[in-house]
């Protein structure tokens, strides 16, 4: 296994039914910073500890869900060579001009076999986290709500999991870190391009291009409980938690934005190194794989997607 030229999830573009309600949710409840709005009315936000210009883009539309998820790659040369590799593998790509998303460089877009649009880019303008780079303080004052530090990963639903895993591992050099299997049949897959337990994950599902959740990192289990308090204070639609995942070990809570897109805030997964071996969960233990305490699956968690 090699280190991937892909650095990390860079941003996610989400569709929402009511833009202002969504901004209140992502800014004041999750605690992302509203950075700017563009000519198309799209809203750009970032977590307080992120260095680049934005990590979440909200777009008003007649149906919620995910437009695309983007990954930052290590250099312009890596972007060019990944584009060639994708094409050689049989994946069509398209170039999206620099500035199409504000402050983001040129993007290479391709569609995963599960139907999801994935963008790669090498450049996004630097904003910094507001703490400076010389003798910085450890955290920023005045951050709202759950105080999400950064965008972390997405879980996506679609049919051809095997082909999606193949593109991500063979072309983009992601590692498969964990999987749920029924015999040889892969039900769910967790993949990393970095040191994290996952940067993107998939669950097999009849319908393609479905969005399960976008996840944001917070600091501690105490902060997960505090997120749960905020969910009740503001009557946010709770999915489930606080609880623990068997898979990735994350301590977590799930809830919905005002348009029905699921969010997660979590803390405490493990460190992945590219020489590690993947973890396997068997279908008969799937309850504890996903919800380690309840040890059973929740209908809504499985079935509710946008």
């Amino acid at each position: 296994m090699a280190q991937s030229p892909v650095l990390r999830p860079g941003h996610v573009v989400l569709r929402v039914l009511d833009l202002e309600a969504a901004v209140v949710h992502y800014r004041d409840r999750l605690g992302l910073q509203e950075i700017e709005r563009d000519g198309q009315g799209r809203v750009y936000l970032k977590g307080w500890d992120e260095q680049d210009w934005f990590s979440v883009v909200l777009r008003e539309a007649d149906r919620p869900g995910m437009d695309s998820m983007a990954f930052k790659v290590i250099s312009a040369a890596a972007l060019d060579s990944l584009e060639k590799d994708l094409n050689a593998y049989g994946c069509k790509t398209a170039r999206l001009a620099a500035g199409e998303l504000s402050h983001c460089g040129e993007r290479v877009r391709f569609t995963l076999p599960t139907g999801h649009a994935i963008d790669l880019y090498a450049q996004k303008d630097y904003m910094g986290n507001g703490l400076g780079r010389v003798n910085p303080d450890p955290w920023l004052e005045g951050i709202k709500g759950m105080q999400a530090q950064r965008f972390d990963h997405c879980l996506l639903y679609g049919a051809d999991l095997d082909a999606t895993i193949k593109v991500l591992t063979e072309v983009l050099k992601f590692d498969l870190t964990e999987k749920v299997v029924d015999g040889d049949f892969v039900i769910a897959a967790f993949l990393s391009c970095s040191n994290k337990a996952h940067d993107i994950a998939f669950v097999r599902h009849a319908e393609d291009n479905k969005f399960h959740h976008a996840s944001f990192l917070i600091g501690t289990w105490e902060e997960v409980l505090r997120a749960a308090d905020i969910i009740s204070m503001h009557e946010i639609s709770l999915d489930l938690g606080p609880t623990r995942h068997g898979i990735t070990r994350g301590r977590t809570i799930y809830f919905f934005d005002p348009s029905g897109n699921r969010n997660e805030v979590f803390c405490g997964d493990y460190t992945w190194y590219p020489d590690h071996q993947p973890i396997t969960w068997t279908a008969d233990q799937i309850g504890r794989a996903i919800f380690y305490h309840d040890r059973k699956l929740n209908e809504n968690f499985l079935n509710v997607v946008t």
């Binding site: 049919a159 040889d184 009849a206 279908a283 799937i286 059973k296 699956l297 499985l302 079935n303």
Partner: peptide, 17 residues
């Protein structure tokens, strides 16, 4: 209606208990 959408090897739904 809540459909069971997580596929398994047999094509049937995962048992949700």
């Amino acid at each position: 209606r809540m459909q069971k959408k997580m596929a398994c090897a047999t094509g049937a739904s995962q048992p949700v208990t």
